[in-house]
Design a protein around this nucleic acid. Sequence first.
DNA 1: CTGTTAGCGCCTTCAA
DNA 2: TTGAAGGCGCTAACAG
Lengths: 340, 340
Amino acid sequence: MAPDRIGRIEEGRATLSDVARAAGVSVATASKALNKRIHVKEETRKRVEAAALSLDFTPNFFAKALNSARTNTIGMVTSDLDNRFVLPILLGAEDAFGAGSLSVLLADARDDAMRERLHIETLLTRKIDGLLVVGRTTNPRPPVSIAADVPVVYVYAPSTDTADASFTPDNVLAGRLAARRLLEAGRRSIALVNGESSYAAAQDRARGVTQELREWGIALTGGESLFGQWGERWGRDCARLVASAHPDLDAIVAGSDHIARGVLDSLERLGRRVPDDIAVVGFDNWDILAAESEPPLTSIDMNLEHLGRAAAQALVEAIDGRPRTGLHQEVVRLVVRESA
Amino acid sequence: MAPDRIGRIEEGRATLSDVARAAGVSVATASKALNKRIHVKEETRKRVEAAALSLDFTPNFFAKALNSARTNTIGMVTSDLDNRFVLPILLGAEDAFGAGSLSVLLADARDDAMRERLHIETLLTRKIDGLLVVGRTTNPRPPVSIAADVPVVYVYAPSTDTADASFTPDNVLAGRLAARRLLEAGRRSIALVNGESSYAAAQDRARGVTQELREWGIALTGGESLFGQWGERWGRDCARLVASAHPDLDAIVAGSDHIARGVLDSLERLGRRVPDDIAVVGFDNWDILAAESEPPLTSIDMNLEHLGRAAAQALVEAIDGRPRTGLHQEVVRLVVRESA
DNA sequence: CTGTTAGCGCCTTCAA
DNA sequence: TTGAAGGCGCTAACAG
């Protein structure tokens, strides 16, 4: 029992050879036994497992990683952690990876290509099994260049290389769902107060809305290009204008919940009741904005947690040799409250 | 140059012995040279470094970790990633750790003690150099029990053990700053529409507000126990009541920006102008709520990014053998907009 | 079924 | 100043 090696005393960890000795077998046998390998007598395995347990043995992660390809670690690079959209995605991903079995190395690139390269470099140094690249917007982004054969999955911001595996919310569908909700409620004069035109999300949502309207034989009131900023102010300003210019207006699709809040605000000031006079629907279903507004806001939920989970799942499968390449536009859903 | 070992071909990584051979020295010398150790002739080192560079040599992380205490990895356990407060903290922490030099293993415990234990267990297995425990609220939490001598720093939620190193925003100061702003602007009838009483943040802010008022010889209008929920609805309801009950009311401190939004809403409906008739100040400086409200909201910023950075810094120092124990209440700051 | 022998890639004595 | 040898803890051949 005397420490036979320098360092044993302070570093209390039991090693495999300790276990082997305690069980009266060789290290190799102990290894096989603990790794549920074949060719080990049941009784021997029991003995080894008992020894391992009593010594509170935990295999040394690094020794293990040293001679096996897998490290059970995946890397996650976000371009902007300060982005509320990435949170649910991370959550979903974390979820899919399962507690304890797979660890996540997180790195934030601050929306800076150099930092991203650097971070990915160090992640690769740590032999991650796979890489999840989380974008800041849904605008396509250049693929990361990785020499090694590490599977990569893009989330939120898809890769410009359509052969890469990318997961992004279906914003066209989102637009359609929003419009459909209004149309089915009998609304016929619908305006779209959109976000910034440089965002794919804004463009896609607009596309979805107009597509749906067209199928109903209707055109967007106020035109298709009411692009502005992603904020309340723009929502307020723009809503005031369209609502005044079009007295028959009976619905507004807002490019985001944030914009929608501004829209609601203006409508109230104009004396238009929501939803009786004018219905309003937003995007994102950001409950801090949507749940307790006056009235509570009907919105399209982008299913971000699901998105993260799907991407993570795909990454795990890719690691296991079953890659799912290409762009995956994940489904979104309508959340009905009172505004539409 | 022919691959002398199985696996060399597919696994293109150059090893130290490759470098040594290329430089015409032994592995030992190469090691010393690259690690800036003494006892290496300058010219030899140059040669080795050149060889390493040309072979694009990166030391094997695991081999290195196998016989050295440091892994340059720290663990970060959040109790609830879905919490908007943790994001800036993570950012600040990531920042303090520096790009590339220190990697972050992220684990989300979902506010579940069992999951937390499990995650910490696996983190320890990976020999993290230190652990950052990020809480969901500022309520004190039981310390994690770690057998090994891994430094731990608590952020946002401090440890109940005051000997542990904890970093949390100074909510009492926050309350004082909010009150002071109003008092200095000449307000004398001030109400506090607070959040949930079970939150230390709500209690501390209340304490700060009353302390400051007391120093000015004033008592809180409407009493000290207007606790409710952290939401707009409560802000609306409560503001309507106090404002009606106290016609002389000239300021409201809202327990959070979210509450403040409800307060603003009610005041507008009651025809009280902000800030002319009644001033309003919130907490959190959550710009999505505060920046574009009508009028824009004056708020107390909790300096979360700074908080995260400070905590991370402390962790790094602790790892380097210079622990900073005890509770650190970090400074917060007033952000003036138009509502007060 | 079990044990012996070789490494994985690196670092660290200790001789030379 | 350099190099040879041993070891970190584990797994993967191959014998026995």
